[in-house]
Amino acid sequence: GTEIELESKNGQREHYTATSEDEARKIIEKAVRRGIKRIELRGASEQLIRDMQEIAKQIGLQYRTDGSL
C-alpha cells in the first residue's frame, strides 16, 4: 500500500495507509480540499507521484516522497 502522512496548517498530523492508488488519490484530494500544509508519500506509484506533483504545483503545497520510484 501507499503510506500517506498529512500535516494540516495547525500542525496536526494524520497517517493513512491506502490499499489502492484510487484510495490514495481520494485521501489526497480530501486533504487538499480541507487545506493541508504538507504531504508525504511512501510507496506511491510513479503515476501517483506525478499526479501529486501536479496538485502541489497548482496549490503551492509542500510534498515529499521517499524517492522509491
Rank of each mutant, 00 (worst) to 15 (best):
T65E: 15
A18L: 06
H15D: 03
E21S: 08
A44E: 01
G60M: 05
R34L: 14
E23H: 06
A31W: 04
Q47E: 10
K26V: 12
E40T: 14
R25K: 08
Q53I: 15
A24K: 00
E14R: 06
A18F: 15
L61N: 05
T2S: 04
Q58Y: 03
A56M: 04
E5G: 08
E5K: 12
I27Q: 01
T17C: 14
H15P: 01
T17A: 07
K57N: 11
R50G: 04
A24T: 03
T2E: 02
E40K: 10
I59P: 03
E54N: 07
R42P: 02
D66R: 01
T19F: 12
E23K: 03
G67E: 11
K37W: 05
G60K: 06
R64W: 15
E14H: 09
Q62R: 08
E7M: 07
R50A: 08
G60I: 05
A31V: 08
L48C: 05
A56R: 02
A56G: 04
R25A: 06
R38M: 12
A24D: 00
G11L: 02
I4H: 00
S45A: 02
A24E: 01
L61M: 05
E5D: 13
I49G: 03
L69Q: 07
E46H: 08
R33I: 13
R64F: 15
E7R: 05
E40Y: 11
I55D: 01
G1R: 11
D66C: 15
L41A: 01
S20Q: 04
I59W: 15
A44P: 04
S68L: 06
T19L: 14
I55R: 03
K37Y: 04
E29R: 06
G11N: 04
A18R: 03
D66K: 02
R34N: 14
I27E: 01
A24W: 02
E29L: 10
R33H: 13
I39D: 00
R13W: 12
R34H: 12
I4C: 03
R25F: 10
Q47I: 07
I28G: 00
E21Q: 05
Q47D: 09
A56T: 03
E54F: 07
Q62G: 04
T2A: 07
M52H: 00
E5I: 13
G35P: 03
G43P: 13
Q58G: 07
R33P: 04
A56V: 06
K30H: 11
E54A: 09
E40W: 12
